[in-house]
């Protein structure tokens, strides 16, 4: 899988690059409008991460060019602008997703995977790890091909972990993904802790061969034991 990161901020570009490389993607970068345009039309990518405000031009113009040339790359806009107009403009020009800065790498990872999977029409829309499997279309959780009931939120948590296998998922990132904007205050860490504890119990009871490991008290990592 080949991904192009178009982002003018060096620090962010590098962070995204190394994060994606951990997922074994081939990552190329472009730091300005002209380089980006050149790369987009010379090479083929499976996914393009596109910043809107670039030196020498707007990311939206790159989207327009792609649309005109009928190139069907998956594009995820990463922008500091989060007004509805910007989102609608981006999506109407053919972007597949819109991610507002600042974001967590785990979130970016999940979005990239979701977008990449969308294009693979063959086969089922599933994520797997060891003996567990999530059917995202039917929202089913399978352990050794046996359906195990999960609550809606438990399913979401597990989904996030499976999209970020063996990667650090911070509690805040997890909470944002599962509970949206509601997670911005108070004693939420205890709350998430209790949710994860319940999920761990469930996984253990059905002999799932995965483990949710606490990392430095800030997050979790799903690994094979």
């Amino acid at each position: 899988m080949k991904i192009l990161v178009i982002e003018d901020e060096k620090g962010l570009r590098e962070a995204i690059k190394s994060s994606l490389e951990k997922e074994s993607y081939v990552v190329e970068t472009a730091s300005d409008f002209n380089t980006a345009l050149e790369k987009v039309f010379v090479y083929e990518y499976d996914c393009i991460l596109l910043d809107i405000m670039l030196p020498y031009g707007s990311g939206l113009d790159i989207l327009k060019e792609l649309k005109e040339k009928q190139k069907t790359e998956n594009v995820i806009i990463i922008s500091a602008k989060d007004s509805l107009d910007d989102k609608l403009a981006g999506l109407s020009l053919g972007a597949d997703d819109y991610l507002t800065k600042p974001f967590y790498l785990a979130e970016l990872n999940a979005r990239v995977k979701a977008v990449l999977r969308r294009n693979k029409l063959q086969g089922k829309n599933t994520v797997e790890m060891s003996n567990i499997c999530l059917d995202l279309d039917e929202r089913l959780f399978l352990v050794d091909n046996q359906v195990v009931p999960l609550t809606r939120k438990e399913f979401d948590i597990l989904n996030y972990f499976l999209l970020n296998q063996r990667r650090l998922v911070t509690r805040t990132a997890l909470a944002e993904y599962v509970w949206g904007d509601h997670i911005d205050q108070t004693d939420n860490f205890d709350f998430i802790y209790s949710q994860i504890r319940n999920l761990k119990k469930k996984l253990k009871a059905v002999q799932a061969e995965v483990e949710i490991r606490a990392v430095y008290g800030i997050g979790y990592k799903m690994v094979e034991p």
Partner: peptide
């Protein structure tokens, strides 16, 4: 507030990567 978004993204993402380092002392 707008201009702070990108620096915040860099800080967050760099720290996330740092936490994933294998040789990181506790």
């Amino acid at each position: 507030a707008h201009e702070l978004q990108t620096p915040l993204a860099i800080i967050t993402n760099k720290l996330e990567l740092l936490l994933e380092e294998k040789q990181l002392p506790d």
